[in-house]
Amino acid sequence: MNRDNIVSVFQFFLLLFLQSFLLNMINLFGFINPNLYLLYIIVYRLDSNPTLLIILGFFMGLLLDLLTQGSGGHTIATLTIAFLRPSIIKFSFGVNYDVPMGMIKGSLLSQRLLYLLLMVMIHHLVLYSVIYFSFNNTITILKNTLFTSFFTFIMVYISLGLFKEK
C-alpha cells in the first residue's frame, strides 16, 4: 500500500464525515447544502482505475445516505457521476489526458472550469431528480440544481486552491 492510496482513503473518510456532519447542516437560504464530497471524485487520479472509482463512488453515496438518513439520491448521483467521469474528462480535456495528477497543471483554465462545471451540474441534476422524482417538480429540481451547484462549485474551487498550496 503506497502513500497515494493512504492519502486517498484518508480523503474519502474526511470528506464523507465533513459532508454528513457539517456541510449538510448549513441549510443556506433554507435549502442550499453544498456537496463538497464531490471533490473526492473530481480529484481522483486521472490515470487510476475507473472501475474502482465506480465502486468507491457507490460506497461514498451509500454511506452518506446512511449517515444522513437520505433516501438514496446521493448513492445514485455519485455512482452516476463516477461512471460518467471518463467521458466528461474526454469531453473537457480532449482525448490525450494521460497526465497523472488529479488536476492537470498544464491544462487551460477554461478546460478545468468546464470539467468542474460539468461534474457538479450533472451530479446535482441527478441528485435532485432522484430526490423529487416527479415531473411536476421540474421547476424545483432545476432551481435546486442551479443554486446548490453554484455554491458547491465555489467550495470545490476554493478547496482545489487549498490543495495546490500544499
Binding site: 465506480i54 465502486i55 451509500l62 438514496g72 448513492t75 455512482l79 461512471f83 471518463p86 432522484v130 422524482f133
Partner: peptide, 24 residues
Amino acid sequence: KNTLLYTVLLMISLLFLNLRSFYH
C-alpha cells in the same frame, strides 16, 4: 465491465431507494 458494474450498482441503489422511501 464499467457499464455492467454501473448497471448492477444502479439496480442495487434503486432497491435501496425503494426500501427507504415511501414516496419512491
